[in-house]
């Protein structure tokens, strides 16, 4: 397997299945780990960065789950390929834009990926479809234990796993859930919900994590605290909060179906109509229309489209994906046309 094979593959987490998948797109757990006695990537000289790579890669590639993985050397990639991996949530901004010796190991069906020499020596992540944080944690826990037997991680009894940024110290774990909350946005309750979240020690972000703006009514909710709570406690806390948010979104959906059903249908089918007939469209409009259509699918207003198709469109209509699919660079204007073409094709089921 290599990078270009990913173009025609659908990631496991885009299946649109799993618990609460009518509102929860995906669950992600990531762990930060560093090798002891070697400076963190931003402070390590090239020889030390190489040392990290040569210690870590064989260890990763001999774990049970990552035996069939493949490695991508980020220092050899052009910006299009880096953007492509970013759009698939396989790497972070930091790794894409970084310098020096760095790479990512990608597991089967893109469920697990491990970034090497990002902010921390290792960033191990697992993404699954629907609300499955505990499952994702269990999988990642197994991988980490195998790695722990082979590598010496920087660890302190008081402060747990030591990370480049103290906001990650302790468990080094960030658990996050991607939620689709169109009805809370439509009924203008989202502000209150997000405010309540921060009081519970959680953070809401946009689609691509830190510093990105929420778009298409998607919100990524994750834990802020990593020290003083066990991994299970952190996950329990998030899941409890997520279930409450889901409850609010459900109520808002019911309310919209009651009083404003015609308006809601109008919104959904207008979006569907545009998407099926569009000739030129940018990614922002695409995301917003896909969100409206998804709400219609989740409410059973239309059965013509599957959630999986919508999830897929969500990823493949982004700039780097469009260009990879066409095998060449496209100007923004060309992309808007190719995007429209791709959407029409996918929605007509051909």
């Amino acid at each position: 397997m290599k990078l270009n094979d990913l173009v025609c593959q659908t990631s496991e987490w885009l299946k649109g299945t799993g618990p609460n998948s009518e509102m929860v797109m995906s669950s992600r757990v990531r762990l930060a780990r560093n090798l002891t006695e070697i400076p963190f990537a931003h402070r390590a000289r090239r020889d030390k960065q190489l040392a990290v790579m040569s210690l870590v890669r064989p260890a990763i590639e001999s774990t049970k789950i990552l035996k069939t993985s493949f490695f991508v050397d980020l220092s050899e990639l052009n910006s299009l390929d880096r953007q492509f991996l970013l759009e698939r949530h396989l790497i972070s901004h930091e790794l894409a834009e970084g310098k020096g010796v760095r790479g990512v190991v990608i597991g089967e069906r893109e469920m697990v990926s491990i970034m090497v020499n990002e902010e921390d020596h290792l960033r191990i992540q697992c993404i699954q479809s629907g609300l499955q944080l505990m499952d994702a944690w269990r999988l990642i826990d197994r991988i980490e234990s195998e790695l722990d037997a082979k590598l010496k991680f920087a660890f302190s009894r008081n402060w747990g796993y030591l990370t480049a940024c103290p906001t990650n110290a302790g468990t080094g774990m960030r658990a996050s859930v991607m939620l689709h909350l169109p009805s809370l946005v439509l009924t203008k309750q989202i502000g209150k919900v997000l405010q309540a979240i921060t009081k519970l020690g959680l953070v809401a972000r946009g689609l691509y994590g830190e510093g990105t703006e929420p778009s298409g009514n998607y919100f990524q909710i994750s834990n802020q605290v990593t020290l003083g709570q066990s991994e299970e406690e952190i996950i329990d806390n998030i899941e409890r909060v997520i279930k409450q948010i889901i409850g609010h979104e459900e109520n808002a959906r019911k309310a919209l179906l009651g009083k404003g059903k015609r308006q809601l249908e109008d919104r959904v089918f207008r979006a569907y109509g545009i998407l099926k007939n569009v000739r030129v469209i940018d990614s922002n409009e695409t995301i917003n229309l896909l969100s409206a259509l998804r709400l219609g699918v989740d409410l059973g207003l239309t059965k013509d489209v599957s959630r999986r198709t919508l999830n897929e469109l969500f990823i493949i209509t982004q700039p780097a994906h469009l260009q990879k699919l066409h095998g060449k660079t496209l100007t923004p204007g060309q992309r808007d046309m190719k995007r429209a073409e791709l959407i029409r094709e996918k929605l007509s089921g051909k």
């Binding site: 008081n158 103290p166 605290v225």
Partner: peptide, 23 residues
Amino acid sequence: SLAPLLKRVHGSNEHVGKSSALA
């Protein structure tokens, strides 16, 4: 310097999660 900082960021100074087997 880090002890009070960690305490303010996390509300705790005591790791209770998974431990490195090596430790």
